[in-house]
């Protein structure tokens, strides 16, 4: 356990993201959404509340996932491509520490971006007298868990793929998670013999759609999920991310650079 090294590496990822203005781009997009939403509010559309919440949840989910995918799938291969990896590997740092530090950095960047955007969107909704309620905290917490899973997938794939290929694959897995799960269910129903294979494939696929409580936030009469469900999601996120990182470490530990 070398938390100081993890923190240093994570700080490096965060600094890069800030200096490359990734988070600023996100903040600007957030401001654009504020103005767009405010304009709609001024027009005085009736039944605006659900629409506004829906828009906010969609934008939050999409932008934070984009940030998580782009950050996680680029941190490692960029080091290889730019040859900044050599002085890094020359330090007394284990490859496992390197991987975990980078993961931590990607998670912090995606969480920070998500929370900044969420704060901006909440401010706009509050200004328009649209209240989210306490369920918003549950939504934020569970979404953060989902972003950690996305980061582990992006980082893991980037150890075996180019940054572009890793990003594309992670996008497909992150956004297409419900479709892929549905496709597997249909395949298993159509051909019962394929059920064991479908189950194995499903276990490997990240179930990111499970972490989206957006609908509960949008529809007022939907209640929060129970704590046991949140606990289950937390467990899934920890186990899936750890497994993805462990698999990446197995690839990375003997890789030649």
């Amino acid at each position: 356990m070398r938390p100081r090294i993890w923190i240093t590496l994570a700080k490096g990822v965060v600094t890069e993201s800030i200096r490359r203005k990734d988070v600023w781009v996100l903040a600007i997009l957030g401001v654009v959404i504020i103005f767009a939403a405010a304009a709609l509010g001024l027009v005085g559309i009736t039944g605006l509340e659900i629409f506004m919440k829906d828009l906010a949840v969609t934008v939050l989910g999409a932008f934070s996932t984009i940030l998580a995918v782009l950050t996680s799938s680029r941190v490692f291969p960029e080091e290889v491509k730019n040859r900044t990896l050599y002085p890094l590997l020359a330090r007394p740092v284990r490859r496992g520490d390197l991987l975990f530090g980078k993961f931590l950095g990607a998670v912090v960047v995606s969480w920070a971006g998500f929370l900044i955007l969420a704060a901006l969107v909440s401010a706009v909704l509050f200004g328009l007298h649209v209240h989210l309620g306490a369920i918003a905290f549950q939504y934020l917490f569970v979404k953060c868990l989902g972003l950690a899973v996305v980061c582990s997938v992006g980082l893991g794939l980037s150890t075996v793929m180019t940054p572009a290929a890793a990003a594309t694959t992670t996008f497909i897995l992150a956004f297409g998670s419900p479709m892929l799960s549905r496709a597997l269910v249909l395949t298993a129903q159509g051909s019962p013999a394929s059920l064991p294979v479908c189950r194995v494939v499903e276990a490997f696929l990240p179930q990111t759609h499970l972490f989206d409580l957006g609908a509960r936030l949008v529809y007022i009469d939907w209640s929060p999920v129970s704590l046991s469900v949140v606990g289950g999601l937390l467990g899934y996120a920890v186990v899936y991310s750890s497994s993805a990182l462990f698999g990446s470490w197995l690839i990375l530990r003997r890789r030649a650079f």
Partner: peptide, 18 residues
Amino acid sequence: MYYPYLSPLETMTFYGEL
């Protein structure tokens, strides 16, 4: 090749911490 977004002092601090 060193991180383009860091200064030499920041680069040294980063590697020094590691």
